[in-house]
Structure formats: structure tokens, C-alpha cells
Design a protein around this nucleic acid. Structure first.
Lengths: 225, 225
DNA sequence: CAGGCGGCTGAGACGCCGCTGAGAGCGAGA
DNA sequence: TCTCGCTCTCAGCGGCGTCTCAGCCGCCTG
């Protein structure tokens, strides 16, 4: 279970490394495209985790080079929501699977296992929390099997919360990741949209998935409340 | 498991050959269309991997010739995203399956296995959504058994929607994939053509297959509305 | 017990999104 | 050359979605 991790954000890299190690992977870490190319050609890995945004050589270039050199190790690519290759499906770049930042660590592990086990890609799956189901591809949300109609902003907020289900996320985090980065308005919008979600997801079902953690932010219950 | 590989890019050809050999295939390699024709008519292969961009005789011509000569070996075609046959679905050229470069090696192997095993393409030949039927080979569309006449642009849009039926596709996605990549105009064209399709497919039958998902895009109902 | 702060809520203004009809431009065919 | 069909542009509109605002509630602290 040897993993090559290519990621330049040191903080993120470190936490992921620790997590993967705990999960039983042997992790090799490099921080730029050049080292990645060298490591991947020199050693044999079961899977490569490749950030698309890298200094010097972009992740995409690395992948291209690897394939050109006959290295066919499965590659899971990390893409940023607002990055240069924003809209592009990472499959188009020849990756075997991909995740969009920010991503759930558990999902990362599951995907890596799937890549190693099946030697094949797995389409991004649906996110669940109890009887709450969100399908990113279809932009659909269900609670207890019943379809819930959301506006784009509501959907974006819920997707973010579900990708971090169980975690407390601050209003600042939410604003950074769900709203336009240039958004300059008040935190209050988040409160308003949390309310909208509660009206559609919690109240009608007499449940409480969206929990307020006073002074800290919000948490989406892993079991759907 | 005999594979005939037709590819002129020597680097790529070599690495793929090595990979396929490792995967247990017996690989025969030729580098141009003439040799491909000769080899394919002279020997029996389980599957042919055919690059569309070839010196002398194009991959498309090779395929045409093969079929004309009664060689029905399954063909997996390799297409480039920006190539001459750019927008064209390789299915339209009579291929049994195709991959766009750059491609995942694992997917290539999976597709080849599928082609050999099932003796047919991975994807169904005719696309359906309820009583909506689209035949890519014949460029024909029917609703409830009744033929619908579409202009090329309308057809292209519908085919794209049907290949992604059930998913929400954004206007940007549509523009990228149905319109000329260099198209610089307004999103509004998409709205206009959605309207045209609705007039022909939905209104006369009092149905609604084409759903607007405000702020996100459009979705073709899997059941035809 | 009082004050303050964080979060909740209802109402409402504004602007953007998508829809629509008309028509200009263009190429193919008569 | 004229006609016809297809593609795309444009501008007006209606309405939904987004966000602001002000007042209120309740928790926490001193």
C-alpha cells in the first residue's frame, strides 16, 4: 500500500500524511512536480495522489509526463473548485479518479482503496448523512427518499456541509468556500441560508441535522439528525 | 487476447504496448493505415486499437475499408480532443468504442476487456429516455414512436443531453461540448435551442423532458418527462 | 439581575436569470 | 438571383433568488 503524495500546501500535506499513515498506508511525500516525476519513475507505488496546483510543473503536466514515460500507476487528482482547470472534469486530463478540495478524508481513503483494489476508477459517489442524500452529479437532494428542491446557493451550502459532515465549520469557512471569494458582505447571509436549509430539510421532517455551535459555527450531523 | 494496435506516435505506442503486454494481451503493432489494413485482413485479432490521426490513410478510412472488406473485429478508436474529427462522436464513424486522449490506461484495459468479452461496445447503440429514442448512427430521433425532425444543432444538443440524462448540465458545459470550442457568443443561444427542442419534443406531446434547473443548467428527465 | 453579544427571523428591495418573439446574416439549392 | 432554412443576436419582460436590514430572543458573563 505505497502512496506517493504530491502536494505543496504543507499544512494539508502533513495532516493527510498522518491520516493515511494511520489508515495503514506507507506514504511518500513530495512538494513539487519535478520531485514527483523523479519519485514516480524511480519507485513503484500503488497509487499517486496528485494536486493539480503545483509550483514549477503543474499536476496536469506531471500526469502527462508520467504517462509518456510509461508509468501507469493509478492517479487520483486533487482539484480546486476555483482553480485554473475549474470546470474541467479531471478525467479529461487522463486521471483515474479525482476529488475536489476541500474533500472528506474518509472519502479520500475509500477512493484510494478502490483504486488499488479494483485497479479502476470510481465515479464520485453520492454524499449521505443518515437519510439525507446528496448527489453531486445530478445536483439532487433527498431526505427519507423524498426529493428536496434547493436553490443554487442552498445547494452549494449543503454540499459544503455534507463534505464536512460531523465537523464544525465556521461562518468564515463557509463564506470562503461557498460564496464568491470576493464577497464582502455580512456573516448574516450564512445564518439566513442555514435557516432556509432548516426549513426545507429539518422542519418538515421534524428532525435536526443542522446544529448550531454557538460561537464556533455549524455542524451537520453525520446521522442526519 | 490478440490486439492490433495502430498508432504512429512511437513513444505512446511503445508504452501502451508494454502496458498491454503486462496486462496479458498479445500485441501486434503497426504505425500507419496501410499496414493496419493489411494486418487486419490477413490475421484474426480479438480487438483493434485504432488512432484516428494516422499518416497516409486516416483511422477513419481504415475503419471504413475494414468494414467494407467484411472485417468486423471490434475497434476501439483513439481520438484527440482538438483533432480534425473533434466534435464527432467516434461512434458516428462506426467504431465500437472510443477513448479521447489523454486517456487512463486502466480504462483502456477495461474497455478492451469489455469489447472482447461482450463482442460489443460498452455503450448502448441507441439512447433512450422513456419514449424518447435517439439513434446516433442514423441521427434520428423519435418520441412515442413518431419521428421528430431536428436541425443539426438541435440534434447535437439533444444527443449531449441524452448522454447525460438525469444529470444537470450547465450552459457552459453545453457550449463547450455542442458548440464550436472557439464559440465566443452568449449563453443565450443555449436557451434559444432548448426552446426549439421543447417545441418539438415536449409541447406537441404535452410532456416535459427538458427541465430548467435555475442557476445551474438543464436536465433531461431519464423517463422522458 | 443587567447588559451585551451571537444567532434567529420576517419582510422587502434589487438584480440577475431564463424565456420569448422578432429579425438579421449566411449558405445551400432552385 | 431569389428563396428557404438554419443559426445566432438582441432587447424586453417577469419572476425567482440573493442579500440586506432591523428587531427580537436567549445564552453567557460579570
Amino acid at each position: 500500500m505505497r502512496v506517493l503524495m504530491v502536494e505543496d500546501e504543507v499544512r494539508l500535506a502533513e495532516t493527510v500524511r498522518r491520516g493515511l499513515t494511520d489508515a495503514g498506508f506507507v506514504v511518500e511525500m513530495v512538494h513539487n512536480g519535478e520531485d514527483a516525476l523523479w519519485a514516480a519513475t524511480e519507485h513503484a507505488y500503488d497509487v499517486i495522489v496528485l494536486d493539480i496546483m503545483l509550483p514549477k510543473v503543474s499536476g496536469y503536466k506531471v500526469l502527462e509526463q508520467l504517462r509518456a514515460r510509461g508509468v501507469w500507476t493509478p492517479v487520483l487528482m486533487l482539484t480546486a473548485k476555483d482553480g485554473e482547470y475549474d470546470q474541467t472534469d479531471a478525467f479529461d486530463l487522463g486521471a483515474d479518479d479525482y476529488l475536489t478540495k476541500p474533500f472528506s478524508f474518509l472519502i479520500l481513503v475509500a477512493r484510494l482503496r478502490a483504486l488499488i483494489r479494483r485497479g479502476g476508477p470510481e465515479r464520485p459517489v453520492v454524499l449521505t448523512a443518515g437519510d439525507l442524500v446528496l448527489d453531486p452529479a445530478r445536483k439532487r437532494v433527498q431526505r427519507a427518499g423524498q426529493e428536496i428542491l434547493l436553490t443554487p446557493r442552498e445547494y452549494g451550502l449543503l454540499e459544503y456541509l455534507m463534505r464536512h459532515r460531523g465537523d464544525v465549520v465556521s461562518k468564515a469557512d463557509i463564506l470562503d468556500n461557498v460564496w464568491d471569494p470576493a464577497f464582502e458582505g455580512d456573516d448574516n447571509v450564512v445564518e439566513v441560508y442555514i435557516r432556509y436549509l432548516r426549513r426545507k430539510l429539518d422542519t418538515p421532517f421534524d428532525r435536526q441535522a443542522l446544529e448550531t455551535v454557538r460561537g464556533m459555527g455549524y455542524r451537520l450531523d453525520e446521522d442526519g439528525g
